[in-house]
Amino acid sequence: MANSGTQSRKYRLQGAGLDLALPYLMLAPGLLIVLGVLVYPLWDGLRASTKVYRYGSVVADVGMQNYIKLWSDPQFLNSLWVTVEFVALSVTFEAILGFALALFCLREFRGIRLLRTILIIPMVITPVVVAIVFRLIYASDAGMLTAISEWMGGGQVQILGSPVKAFIGLVVLDVWEWTPLMFLILLAGLQSLPHEPFEAARVDGAGNWRVFADLTFPMMRPVLAIAIVLRTIDAFGTFDQVFVLTRGGPGEATRLVSIYGYDTAFKFQQTGYAAALFVTIGLVVLALAFSAVRLLRRVDAS
């Protein structure tokens, strides 16, 4: 896109005098704010992660010890495992449901606009409120499930008191909240596919399943990959919903790394250790993102 013609024109546009300083003047305000409020803290966080704090002040410099300690901390390892399970389950269900719904909505029909409008709601509602909504569904006394069960003659339904059910309850919340995003991305992807191969396959008499397996799915792989990567990165940092729904409990059943990190910092006041934990999470997510970018470049090239 950027051929030499537009390049040289841009040079010409730069003009002289005050105009020479213009790009710097335009970049400065944003860059200064970002440097002060994001980059400096990032650097400060790296520094803090090598220290031990007591009551808010540094008492020892321990180098990489905090990072090493993480990998023998059973609570951290458990929270990491819970997070991986949570992300894997949620994103898988969201991808399957979102894809199925997108395929279903591909043919325009009446009511599709209403459907798309309604599907925007879960992902724009404040995550804290989403968690309240699900507490109101799961609560054993005031919950929707209990009310329905009692209406049908059953008893109270317990969800958040049992480790396994609470975890599943959290996955259901995430699927409710984020399947619509999957759906929107995948629908846009499906709508941008070329028509010719599909027409040709129909002429050749291919059935629905063959068309899907040989054409739709392979052609949709890049979009599917982007959607899954975006959602995975996002789900890895899930905090608000868990904080309000279960606070990580019962026991450690829903304690994601973000919750464990928050507690380590603000409840147990282990500032340096928590900083190391968060830096580690950041590195994991960046690694995910960069491998995803490489994956996409490869898909683009082929």
Partner: peptide, 10 residues
């Protein structure tokens, strides 16, 4: 891309 939680403490 860095999750905001990384700079929460600093």
């Amino acid at each position: 891309i860095v999750p905001p939680v990384v700079i929460l403490i600093p």
